[in-house]
Simulated scan of single mutants.
Amino acid sequence: MEQHQHSHSDGIYTCPMHPEETGKKGDKCPKCGMDLVPVSDENASKVEVKLHTEPQTIEAGTSAKLTFAFQENNKHVPLDISHEMKVHLMIVDENLSWFRHIHPEEQADGSYTIAETFPNGGKYILFSDFKPQGAASVVDKKEIIVKGSSDSKADFSTKLVSVVDGYTVTLENGKDLKTNRSQALEISVVKDGKKLTESDIQPYLAATAHIAMVSKENKDFLHIHPISDDRFPIYAETHIKKTGTYRIWVEFQTNGKVHTADFTVDVAEGEKNAHDDGHHGHHEH
Protein backbone atom coordinates (compact mmCIF):
# COMPACT_ATOMS: atom_id res chain seq x y z
CA MET A 1 0.00 0.00 0.00
CA GLU A 2 1.18 3.46 -0.81
CA GLN A 3 1.03 6.02 1.95
CA HIS A 4 0.67 9.70 1.21
CA GLN A 5 1.89 12.63 3.27
CA HIS A 6 1.76 16.38 3.24
CA SER A 7 4.91 18.17 2.09
CA HIS A 8 5.43 19.33 5.69
CA SER A 9 8.27 17.25 7.13
CA ASP A 10 7.62 17.55 10.88
CA GLY A 11 7.05 14.11 12.36
CA ILE A 12 7.32 12.28 9.05
CA TYR A 13 9.41 9.11 8.86
CA THR A 14 10.31 7.30 5.67
CA CYS A 15 11.92 4.04 4.57
CA PRO A 16 15.59 4.37 3.48
CA MET A 17 14.97 1.84 0.70
CA HIS A 18 11.41 2.82 -0.26
CA PRO A 19 11.02 6.59 0.21
CA GLU A 20 7.38 6.44 -0.90
CA GLU A 21 6.57 4.49 2.28
CA THR A 22 6.04 6.96 5.10
CA GLY A 23 4.69 6.91 8.61
CA LYS A 24 5.48 7.80 12.20
CA LYS A 25 8.29 7.02 14.64
CA GLY A 26 8.39 3.32 15.45
CA ASP A 27 6.74 2.21 12.22
CA LYS A 28 8.33 -0.33 9.89
CA CYS A 29 8.29 -0.33 6.09
CA PRO A 30 5.48 -2.60 4.84
CA LYS A 31 7.60 -3.55 1.83
CA CYS A 32 10.91 -4.54 3.45
CA GLY A 33 10.41 -4.33 7.22
CA MET A 34 13.10 -1.72 7.81
CA ASP A 35 12.59 0.84 10.57
CA LEU A 36 11.42 4.17 9.20
CA VAL A 37 13.84 7.08 9.70
CA PRO A 38 13.10 10.81 10.06
CA VAL A 39 12.74 12.78 6.86
CA SER A 40 15.51 15.34 6.91
CA ASP A 41 14.89 18.89 5.81
CA GLU A 42 17.17 18.20 2.85
CA ASN A 43 14.97 15.33 1.69
CA ALA A 44 11.60 16.87 2.49
CA SER A 45 9.71 18.10 -0.50
CA LYS A 46 9.38 21.87 -0.70
CA VAL A 47 7.40 21.79 -3.91
CA GLU A 48 5.02 24.65 -4.54
CA VAL A 49 1.96 23.77 -6.59
CA LYS A 50 0.60 26.52 -8.83
CA LEU A 51 -2.75 26.27 -10.63
CA HIS A 52 -3.73 28.37 -13.64
CA THR A 53 -7.19 28.13 -15.18
CA GLU A 54 -8.20 29.13 -18.68
CA PRO A 55 -10.50 30.97 -18.80
CA GLN A 56 -9.73 32.62 -15.48
CA THR A 57 -13.44 32.64 -14.60
CA ILE A 58 -14.79 29.12 -15.10
CA GLU A 59 -18.42 28.71 -16.12
CA ALA A 60 -20.47 25.61 -15.30
CA GLY A 61 -21.09 23.43 -18.36
CA THR A 62 -18.17 24.90 -20.30
CA SER A 63 -14.82 23.18 -20.74
CA ALA A 64 -11.95 24.75 -18.79
CA LYS A 65 -8.23 24.11 -19.08
CA LEU A 66 -6.41 23.42 -15.80
CA THR A 67 -2.62 23.86 -15.76
CA PHE A 68 -0.57 22.67 -12.79
CA ALA A 69 3.05 23.65 -12.17
CA PHE A 70 5.05 21.71 -9.57
CA GLN A 71 7.95 24.00 -8.76
CA GLU A 72 10.82 24.60 -6.39
CA ASN A 73 12.53 28.00 -6.61
CA ASN A 74 10.31 28.73 -9.64
CA LYS A 75 11.72 25.75 -11.54
CA HIS A 76 9.68 22.72 -12.55
CA VAL A 77 10.40 19.68 -10.39
CA PRO A 78 10.69 16.28 -12.11
CA LEU A 79 8.09 13.78 -10.92
CA ASP A 80 8.23 10.01 -10.59
CA ILE A 81 5.56 7.77 -12.08
CA SER A 82 3.28 6.39 -9.36
CA HIS A 83 0.51 3.96 -10.26
CA GLU A 84 1.21 4.50 -13.97
CA MET A 85 0.80 8.28 -13.82
CA LYS A 86 2.87 11.25 -12.70
CA VAL A 87 -0.13 13.21 -11.41
CA HIS A 88 -3.40 11.89 -10.03
CA LEU A 89 -5.97 14.68 -9.81
CA MET A 90 -9.10 14.06 -7.78
CA ILE A 91 -11.85 16.67 -7.85
CA VAL A 92 -14.98 16.90 -5.70
CA ASP A 93 -17.69 19.51 -5.40
CA GLU A 94 -18.41 21.13 -2.05
CA ASN A 95 -21.43 18.87 -1.45
CA LEU A 96 -19.31 15.76 -2.20
CA SER A 97 -21.92 14.66 -4.74
CA TRP A 98 -19.61 14.81 -7.79
CA PHE A 99 -16.21 13.11 -8.12
CA ARG A 100 -13.54 12.86 -10.80
CA HIS A 101 -10.18 11.04 -10.85
CA ILE A 102 -8.24 12.29 -13.89
CA HIS A 103 -4.64 12.63 -15.00
CA PRO A 104 -3.15 15.88 -16.28
CA GLU A 105 -0.66 15.36 -19.12
CA GLU A 106 2.92 16.56 -19.02
CA GLN A 107 3.74 19.42 -21.40
CA ALA A 108 7.02 20.37 -23.07
CA ASP A 109 7.59 23.19 -20.56
CA GLY A 110 7.25 20.80 -17.57
CA SER A 111 3.72 21.80 -16.58
CA TYR A 112 0.70 19.45 -16.57
CA THR A 113 -2.63 20.27 -18.20
CA ILE A 114 -6.08 18.77 -18.51
CA ALA A 115 -9.52 19.96 -19.65
CA GLU A 116 -12.57 19.44 -17.43
CA THR A 117 -16.20 20.54 -17.56
CA PHE A 118 -17.76 21.29 -14.20
CA PRO A 119 -21.49 20.47 -14.11
CA ASN A 120 -22.66 23.06 -11.58
CA GLY A 121 -21.72 26.38 -10.11
CA GLY A 122 -20.12 26.50 -6.68
CA LYS A 123 -16.89 25.54 -4.92
CA TYR A 124 -14.76 22.60 -6.04
CA ILE A 125 -11.80 21.06 -4.21
CA LEU A 126 -8.85 19.74 -6.24
CA PHE A 127 -6.45 17.20 -4.74
CA SER A 128 -3.29 16.63 -6.79
CA ASP A 129 -1.36 13.53 -5.72
CA PHE A 130 2.25 13.44 -7.00
CA LYS A 131 5.72 12.18 -6.11
CA PRO A 132 8.75 14.43 -6.62
CA GLN A 133 11.78 12.41 -7.72
CA GLY A 134 13.57 10.96 -4.69
CA ALA A 135 10.99 12.24 -2.20
CA ALA A 136 7.81 11.01 -0.55
CA SER A 137 4.43 11.36 -2.21
CA VAL A 138 2.62 14.65 -1.64
CA VAL A 139 -1.04 15.64 -1.86
CA ASP A 140 -1.81 19.29 -2.55
CA LYS A 141 -5.24 20.80 -1.98
CA LYS A 142 -6.66 23.68 -4.01
CA GLU A 143 -10.11 25.29 -4.22
CA ILE A 144 -11.75 26.95 -7.20
CA ILE A 145 -15.08 28.71 -7.70
CA VAL A 146 -17.20 27.88 -10.74
CA LYS A 147 -19.78 30.40 -11.89
CA GLY A 148 -23.31 29.29 -12.63
CA SER A 149 -26.41 27.88 -10.97
CA SER A 150 -26.28 24.70 -8.95
CA ASP A 151 -28.79 21.89 -8.65
CA SER A 152 -26.25 19.85 -6.69
CA LYS A 153 -27.72 18.71 -3.38
CA ALA A 154 -25.84 17.60 -0.30
CA ASP A 155 -26.86 14.10 0.86
CA PHE A 156 -24.82 12.75 3.74
CA SER A 157 -27.18 9.98 4.84
CA THR A 158 -25.42 6.67 5.43
CA LYS A 159 -24.93 4.68 2.24
CA LEU A 160 -23.19 1.30 2.37
CA VAL A 161 -24.50 -0.24 -0.90
CA SER A 162 -23.82 1.23 -4.35
CA VAL A 163 -25.29 -0.14 -7.58
CA VAL A 164 -23.24 0.80 -10.64
CA ASP A 165 -23.35 -0.68 -14.17
CA GLY A 166 -25.16 -3.78 -12.90
CA TYR A 167 -22.69 -4.38 -10.06
CA THR A 168 -23.86 -4.29 -6.44
CA VAL A 169 -20.94 -3.01 -4.40
CA THR A 170 -21.19 -3.18 -0.60
CA LEU A 171 -18.93 -1.75 2.09
CA GLU A 172 -19.53 -4.68 4.42
CA ASN A 173 -18.03 -3.17 7.58
CA GLY A 174 -19.11 0.41 6.92
CA LYS A 175 -20.97 0.67 10.25
CA ASP A 176 -17.85 -0.17 12.25
CA LEU A 177 -15.32 2.46 11.17
CA LYS A 178 -13.51 4.18 14.04
CA THR A 179 -10.54 6.44 14.67
CA ASN A 180 -7.41 5.55 16.66
CA ARG A 181 -6.88 2.17 15.05
CA SER A 182 -5.76 0.44 11.91
CA GLN A 183 -8.78 -1.05 10.20
CA ALA A 184 -10.01 -2.68 7.04
CA LEU A 185 -12.33 -1.53 4.28
CA GLU A 186 -14.09 -4.76 3.28
CA ILE A 187 -15.85 -4.39 -0.06
CA SER A 188 -17.88 -7.08 -1.81
CA VAL A 189 -18.96 -7.00 -5.46
CA VAL A 190 -21.91 -9.00 -6.86
CA LYS A 191 -22.97 -9.27 -10.53
CA ASP A 192 -25.95 -11.34 -11.70
CA GLY A 193 -26.10 -13.08 -8.32
CA LYS A 194 -22.44 -14.10 -8.43
CA LYS A 195 -19.92 -12.91 -5.88
CA LEU A 196 -16.80 -11.65 -7.60
CA THR A 197 -13.31 -12.53 -6.44
CA GLU A 198 -10.15 -10.49 -6.89
CA SER A 199 -9.37 -12.44 -10.08
CA ASP A 200 -12.61 -11.14 -11.64
CA ILE A 201 -11.36 -7.56 -11.35
CA GLN A 202 -8.76 -6.19 -13.75
CA PRO A 203 -5.88 -4.11 -12.38
CA TYR A 204 -6.55 -0.40 -12.75
CA LEU A 205 -3.59 1.99 -12.65
CA ALA A 206 -1.36 -0.70 -11.11
CA ALA A 207 -3.77 -1.50 -8.28
CA THR A 208 -6.79 -3.72 -7.66
CA ALA A 209 -8.80 -0.53 -7.20
CA HIS A 210 -8.43 3.09 -6.14
CA ILE A 211 -10.25 4.41 -3.09
CA ALA A 212 -10.69 8.08 -2.22
CA MET A 213 -12.16 9.28 1.09
CA VAL A 214 -13.10 12.91 1.73
CA SER A 215 -14.51 14.24 5.01
CA LYS A 216 -17.64 16.37 5.08
CA GLU A 217 -16.31 18.89 7.59
CA ASN A 218 -12.77 19.86 6.60
CA LYS A 219 -12.51 18.06 3.24
CA ASP A 220 -9.65 15.96 4.63
CA PHE A 221 -8.48 13.51 1.98
CA LEU A 222 -7.25 9.92 1.97
CA HIS A 223 -6.08 8.10 -1.18
CA ILE A 224 -5.98 4.36 -0.54
CA HIS A 225 -4.82 1.44 -2.65
CA PRO A 226 -6.22 -2.00 -1.80
CA ILE A 227 -4.12 -5.04 -0.99
CA SER A 228 -5.02 -8.64 -1.78
CA ASP A 229 -7.40 -10.61 0.42
CA ASP A 230 -9.05 -14.01 -0.08
CA ARG A 231 -12.40 -12.92 1.38
CA PHE A 232 -13.10 -9.70 -0.50
CA PRO A 233 -12.30 -8.71 -4.10
CA ILE A 234 -11.54 -5.17 -2.88
CA TYR A 235 -9.86 -4.96 0.53
CA ALA A 236 -7.80 -2.14 1.96
CA GLU A 237 -6.37 -1.06 5.28
CA THR A 238 -6.33 2.51 6.52
CA HIS A 239 -6.01 4.68 9.61
CA ILE A 240 -8.64 7.42 9.93
CA LYS A 241 -7.52 10.22 12.21
CA LYS A 242 -10.70 12.28 12.61
CA THR A 243 -14.29 11.43 13.44
CA GLY A 244 -17.13 12.60 11.23
CA THR A 245 -18.95 11.86 8.02
CA TYR A 246 -16.94 10.75 4.98
CA ARG A 247 -17.80 10.17 1.35
CA ILE A 248 -15.94 7.26 -0.28
CA TRP A 249 -15.42 6.55 -3.98
CA VAL A 250 -14.16 3.15 -5.15
CA GLU A 251 -12.92 2.81 -8.73
CA PHE A 252 -12.53 -0.72 -10.12
CA GLN A 253 -12.22 -2.16 -13.61
CA THR A 254 -13.87 -5.10 -15.37
CA ASN A 255 -13.82 -5.94 -19.07
CA GLY A 256 -11.86 -2.79 -19.83
CA LYS A 257 -14.38 -0.44 -18.20
CA VAL A 258 -13.87 1.52 -15.00
CA HIS A 259 -16.79 1.61 -12.57
CA THR A 260 -17.11 4.07 -9.68
CA ALA A 261 -19.06 3.04 -6.59
CA ASP A 262 -19.76 5.54 -3.83
CA PHE A 263 -20.52 5.26 -0.11
CA THR A 264 -21.25 7.56 2.83
CA VAL A 265 -20.05 6.53 6.29
CA ASP A 266 -19.88 7.92 9.80
CA VAL A 267 -16.56 7.39 11.58
CA ALA A 268 -16.87 7.19 15.37
CA GLU A 269 -14.27 7.84 18.04
CA GLY A 270 -12.30 4.70 18.76
CA GLU A 271 -10.62 3.78 22.00
CA LYS A 272 -7.05 4.97 22.22
CA ASN A 273 -4.82 1.92 22.25
CA ALA A 274 -1.14 2.43 22.95
CA HIS A 275 -0.32 -0.75 21.06
CA ASP A 276 -2.02 0.48 17.90
CA ASP A 277 -0.91 4.09 18.02
CA GLY A 278 1.35 3.69 14.98
CA HIS A 279 0.56 4.77 11.45
CA HIS A 280 -0.68 1.90 9.32
CA GLY A 281 -2.64 3.61 6.60
CA HIS A 282 -2.78 6.77 4.56
CA HIS A 283 -2.39 10.19 6.01
CA GLU A 284 -5.12 12.73 5.64
CA HIS A 285 -4.61 15.97 3.78
Rank of each mutant, 00 (worst) to 15 (best):
I248V: 12
S199M: 07
I201A: 00
L36I: 08
S182D: 15
D129A: 04
K75N: 12
G270V: 05
E251M: 11
A108K: 14
K86D: 05
A154Y: 00
K178G: 00
K191Q: 06
G281T: 04
D230Y: 09
E72M: 05
S128T: 11
H76D: 13
E143P: 00
F221R: 06
D262I: 02
P233H: 07
D276M: 15
L160C: 01
D276Y: 15
G256D: 08
V77R: 09
H101M: 09
R231E: 13
K219C: 09
V164Q: 06
I102V: 10
I91W: 00
K123C: 01
D93P: 03
D165L: 04
M17T: 15
D27I: 13
E269Y: 09
M90G: 13
G26M: 04
M34D: 05
F68S: 04
V87Q: 06
F252N: 01
Q71P: 04
N43Q: 14
A268I: 05
K153V: 15
T208H: 12
G256C: 05
E143V: 12
T22Q: 04
K159I: 07
Q183A: 06
L205D: 09
H259F: 10
H279A: 12
D230P: 14
E143M: 13
H283D: 11
I91C: 10
K272S: 13
D229A: 06
K50V: 04
S215K: 09
K241M: 13
V169F: 02
P78L: 02
H88Y: 07
V250N: 01
G122H: 07
V47A: 05
K153I: 14
K219E: 11
S40E: 02
D276K: 15
T62I: 15
Y246P: 06
P226M: 03
R100Y: 11
L222E: 10
V164S: 00
S228W: 02
F263A: 09
H210E: 03
H18Q: 04
I248Y: 09
T67G: 01
C32F: 08
E143R: 00
L171M: 08
E284L: 07
D165Y: 10
E237R: 03
D200R: 00
A184W: 01
V47K: 01
